[in-house]
Structure formats: C-alpha cells, structure tokens
Amino acid sequence: MAYVISDSCISCGSCAAQCPVSAISQGASQYEIDPNTCIDCGSCAAQCPVSAIAQG
C-alpha cells in the first residue's frame, strides 16, 4: 500500500528530494504522493521532519 501525506505537511519538500522514483510532487496545498508510482520504500517517511507521512 502506498504512503500518504497527512494535513500535517508543512510543504518543506524534503520528502520529494528523497523519493527515488519521483512519486512526490507539490499539490494545491501540500505535497502529494502518486500511489501508482510509489514503491513503498519508506524513504520519504524517514525524511519528514513533522512525521506527516505514513502508509495508507
């Protein structure tokens, strides 16, 4: 199951820089993870300074 970004996201972009498959992009109000591209590696969750990313 792909990772998801919660409303706690502060739009810092650290998760997008860490994603090895470029599944994360800036959405309208915060960053978003494309579930079809996400490989469930968890790199983004480990990088998030506010723990806004978890498996969906």
Rank of each mutant, 00 (worst) to 15 (best):
S14I: 12
M1D: 09
Q18N: 08
A52S: 15
T37F: 00
Y31W: 15
C48P: 05
A54H: 08
S6P: 06
G13A: 06
D34E: 08
A45V: 07
C44V: 10
I33L: 11
C12Q: 08
S8A: 14
P20T: 01
P49Y: 02
Y3W: 07
G56L: 03
Q18M: 14
S29N: 13
Y3S: 06
I39A: 02
Q26S: 12
I10Q: 12
S25E: 14
P20D: 10
Q47M: 14
S14H: 02
I5R: 03
C15H: 07
T37E: 11
C19T: 01
A23C: 13
G27L: 12
A46F: 05
V50S: 04
Y3Q: 00
D40S: 14
I33M: 06
E32G: 00
C38F: 07
G27R: 10
Y31C: 07
A46L: 10
A54Y: 10
G56C: 01
C19W: 04
S6W: 06
P49Q: 00
T37L: 13
A45N: 00
A54N: 09
D34C: 03
S8P: 00
S8E: 13
C9S: 09
Q47R: 13
S43G: 15
C15G: 11
C48F: 02
G13N: 10
Q47Y: 00
S51F: 09
S25N: 06
Y3I: 03
A23F: 06
S51P: 00
I5T: 12
Q55S: 09
A2V: 05
S25M: 04
M1E: 06
Y3A: 03
N36A: 14
G42W: 03
C15Y: 04
S8T: 03
S11T: 14
G13M: 05
Q30Y: 11
V50L: 03
G13E: 11
G27Y: 11
S25I: 03
A54R: 11
D34H: 01
S25A: 12
G13D: 08
C9D: 08
D40W: 00
V50Q: 02
P20Y: 10
A52L: 02
A46M: 04
I53W: 06
C44P: 01
I5K: 05
G56A: 14
V50M: 03
I33H: 09
I39R: 05
Q55W: 04
I39C: 05
N36T: 15
C44T: 13
Q26L: 15
P49G: 02
D34N: 15
V50D: 05
Y31S: 08
C15R: 06
P20R: 13
I5L: 05
A54T: 15
M1C: 09
E32I: 15
G56M: 02
C48Y: 06
S43H: 03
G27S: 12
G13T: 13
G42F: 05
D34K: 01
V4Y: 00
A28S: 15
A45G: 04
I10W: 04
Y31G: 07
I24T: 14
S25R: 12
C38I: 08
Q26Y: 12
A23Q: 01
A28R: 14
D7E: 14
I10Y: 01
S8G: 09
D40L: 06
D34P: 02
Y31E: 04
